[in-house]
C-alpha cells in the first residue's frame, strides 16, 4: 500500500481517537440502562468524527457530528424519556450464558472473516494518485469534493433518497400517532 509518511503527531492522534472509539463502544455495549449507553455511543460517534477529519473527509466529519451525535442520538434519548425507560428494571439482565457464548462465537467468526477479507489484494488499477484527494480538496473545497460526484454520477440515487426520506417521515408520523387521533 502506498502510504505516505505520516508525522508522529498524526499517528499518535489517530491511535488516540481509535482507542477512545473502541473503549467507548465497549462501555456502550456493556451498559444495561439506555441513557448511559446512549451517552457512550455519542462519545464513540465524536471520536469517529475526529477520525473522519483526519482521513481527509472533513465534510463527513461535520455530518457525523450533526446527524449522528446531534440528531439521531437526541431522538433516541427523547424516546427513552418519553417512554420513561431510564430506570433499571427486569431489562437490566441481558440474555443468559448460552446466548453470550453464542454471541462471542458469532463475533469471533465474523472478525476472522473480516480480517481475511482485509488482507485480500486490492485491484491496483482502481487506485487513484496519492495526492488525488488533496487536489480535489484544493480545487473544490470540502463540500464540493462530495457534491460534485454526488450530483454528477449519482443523481438517481440522490432523488430516490428524497423519496425514502418522505416515506420515512410519513411512516413515522402514522406509526407514532396511534389510533386515538385518527378515530376521532
Amino acid at each position: 500500500m502506498t502510504d505516505p509518511h505520516y508525522s508522529l503527531f498524526y499517528v499518535f492522534h489517530f491511535y488516540l481517537f481509535g482507542v477512545i472509539a473502541l473503549a467507548s463502544a465497549l462501555a456502550f455495549v456493556t451498559r444495561t440502562s439506555p441513557v448511559p449507553a446512549a451517552l457512550w455511543l455519542v462519545n464513540t460517534m465524536f471520536s469517529l468524527a475526529a477520525l473522519f477529519v483526519m482521513l481527509d473527509a472533513q465534510f463527513i466529519g461535520v455530518m457525523q457530528v450533526l446527524v449522528y451525535a446531534g440528531a439521531i442520538m437526541v431522538v433516541f434519548l427523547f424516546v427513552v424519556m418519553l417512554l420513561n425507560l431510564g430506570h433499571p428494571s427486569e431489562l437490566a439482565h441481558p440474555r443468559g450464558k448460552w446466548w453470550k457464548l453464542a454471541a462471542g462465537l458469532v463475533g469471533l467468526g465474523l472478525l476472522s472473516e473480516i480480517m481475511v477479507i482485509a488482507r485480500a489484494k486490492l485491484p491496483q488499477q482502481l487506485i487513484v494518485p496519492r495526492d488525488f484527494n488533496e487536489q480535489q480538496l484544493q480545487k473544490l473545497n470540502a463540500v464540493g469534493t462530495i457534491a460534485e460526484p454526488l450530483f454528477r454520477d449519482y443523481p438517481l440515487a440522490f432523488e430516490l433518497t428524497s423519496v425514502l426520506l418522505l416515506v420515512a417521515i410519513a411512516g413515522a408520523v402514522v406509526l407514532a400517532r396511534g389510533r386515538a387521533a385518527g378515530a376521532r
Binding site: 473502541l22 465497549l26 424516546v79 458469532v106 465474523l110 472478525l111 480480517m115
Partner: peptide, 21 residues
C-alpha cells in the same frame, strides 16, 4: 478498527433484550 466496532455492534444485538439498545 472498523471490524472491531462492527463486531461489537453485532454482539450487542445478540446479547441485549432492550429494543432501544
Amino acid at each position: 478498527l472498523t471490524a472491531a466496532l462492527f463486531i461489537i455492534g453485532v454482539m450487542g444485538v445478540l446479547i441485549h433484550r432492550n429494543a432501544i439498545i
